[in-house]
Each structure stands twice: as structure tokens, then as C-alpha cells.
């Protein structure tokens, strides 16, 4: 009798462990499916905005990164159920995490290569840095709001992006020791483009800046420095709206 009880006890324990383990697997699987669905939504949106982006589709590597990075690890617990909806989410301290479609477009516009060096101003929750880390070898990210910076460092570590260099502080002067960069993302709102950042951009490098109020990206500014160090900007409307009097 005692042995039977013992057996039942162990069976229950193993059952619980299996359940816990499988629930984790099931959850992971569910998140993976949601990420895939999100990528499909983004692909569709990109197709609709191809005229503005000057391309039919985003780079497969960018889409792969979106499929891989667990966005739910980068949002507050109460926002997790919405982590894979194509919408901006609040992350506390009056900051938001951009809409995944905007993140995808911004990342794609940087045209990153594997051994590129990238800088992000405004780490936020760390999601954009994680996406960059999937595409380029070195990622540097600066956040000025202390608690956010700490949270982002934890998020990145937990999701396995230990290689991302993070720093708490003022991003205006970029990251001098690691400069120059092939790509720079400025997610923190600035009244103007900091001249030191333009300086830290490599010839041929690109910088991307979303412009707008919280929860509302109005347009993207792509700053390019050509090989002669001539700097130009491109203003990109991230939706498929045909302005002026154009036909639909």
C-alpha cells in the first residue's frame, strides 16, 4: 500500500513537472505563432505602402528578426497579452514601444549588414536593440531615464541579448568610443538632429528618426551620409496614403 502511495505521489509530481514544462513550451509555441501572424500583418502593410518605401517587401533578415525576438519579454506584464498586436504599447515613464510595423520599416531602412556597428539613442524597453542585435554584430544603446535603462538591460539579458552594450545617460554626444556607426536609430524625441550623431555616422551610413507624438508616428526621417560625406534626409510617410490630388 505504501509503495502504491509512493508511486502515486511520484506520478503526480512528474505530472505536475511535465505540465509546467509543457505549459512553458505551449506558451512559447503560442508566442511563436503570434509572431508569425504579426509578420504576416507587417508584410501586408508593407505591400500597401510600397510606393513610399520604394520597395515591394522588407529584407527577409528583418522579418526573421521579428519572428525571433520575443516582444513579450520587452513589455510590462499587464501589456503581455497585446505584445504581438501591431500597435504601440506603453512601457511606463511616459514612454512607448513603437508599433512593430514601424520598428520593421525603420530597421529595414538602415540596410544593416552582419558585421555592421549600430547605435540606438533611447533604449526604451530594449526591443529595438534586440532586433538590431539579430541583424548586426555590435549594438550600442543609450537610455537617459534610469529605471527604463535598468529594465531594458534586464530584458535584454533575459532574452539572451547579452552582447548588446547598454549605457545610462545623455545620448546627444552618441558613443564616441565605439564610433563611427553604420546605422543609428534615434527613438528618443529630439528638437533637432544632434550634430555629434551626424558626425559619428560612417560615410555610407544611415540614421533613422521617427517623428510624432507618443502612440503616433507621423513620419520617418532617414538621414544618409554618402561617401563624400554629403548629408541628405528623406521623409517617409509610413502609411499608404496618397497625398495631394493623386488617385487611389
Amino acid at each position: 500500500m505504501k509503495r502504491v502511495k509512493h508511486l502515486i505521489f511520484w506520478l503526480v509530481v512528474i505530472g505536475i513537472i511535465l505540465l509546467l514544462f509543457s505549459s512553458h513550451v505551449i506558451a512559447e509555441d503560442m508566442f511563436r505563432q503570434q509572431r508569425q501572424a504579426l509578420v504576416d500583418v507587417i508584410k501586408y502593410d508593407v505591400l500597401r505602402t510600397r510606393d513610399f518605401l520604394n520597395q515591394e517587401a522588407l529584407d527577409d533578415r528583418v522579418l526573421d528578426a521579428l519572428r525571433k525576438v520575443p516582444r513579450h519579454e520587452f513589455v510590462p506584464d499587464d501589456q503581455r497579452p497585446y505584445a504581438y498586436q501591431n500597435r504601440p504599447l506603453p512601457i511606463g515613464y511616459g514612454q512607448t514601444i513603437s508599433q512593430p510595423y514601424i520598428v520593421a520599416v525603420m530597421t529595414d531602412l538602415l540596410k544593416l549588414k552582419k558585421n555592421d556597428r549600430t547605435l540606438e539613442i533611447g533604449t526604451g524597453s530594449g526591443y529595438q536593440a534586440a532586433i538590431l542585435a539579430e541583424l548586426a554584430d555590435s549594438v550600442y544603446s543609450i537610455e537617459i531615464v534610469e529605471p527604463l535603462a535598468k529594465q531594458a538591460a534586464t530584458n535584454l539579458k533575459r532574452a539572451g541579448y547579452d552582447a548588446v552594450h547598454t549605457r545610462t545617460g545623455d545620448g546627444y554626444y552618441g558613443w564616441e568610443e565605439a564610433a563611427p556607426f553604420d546605422g543609428i536609430v534615434v527613438t528618443a524625441v529630439a528638437s533637432h538632429i544632434p550634430p555629434p550623431l551626424i558626425k559619428q555616422l560612417k560615410p555610407g551610413g544611415r540614421m533613422i528618426i521617427p517623428v510624432g507624438a507618443p502612440f503616433m508616428t507621423q513620419y520617418l526621417v532617414l538621414v544618409s551620409k554618402d561617401t563624400d560625406e554629403k548629408v541628405t534626409t528623406r521623409q517617409i510617410l509610413p502609411v499608404s496614403f496618397v497625398p495631394l490630388t493623386g488617385k487611389h
Binding site: Y172, S191, P195
Partner: peptide
Amino acid sequence: ELTPLRHAPGLSLNAATE
């Protein structure tokens, strides 16, 4: 006190001063 405000909307890309 720690981080300058640097409010200069509309600044040219070629500006070097802050």
C-alpha cells in the same frame, strides 16, 4: 542640471554649434 536642454527646432543638418 545634468543634461542640457538644447531646444533648437528646425536646426540645419550642417549646424555644428549647439
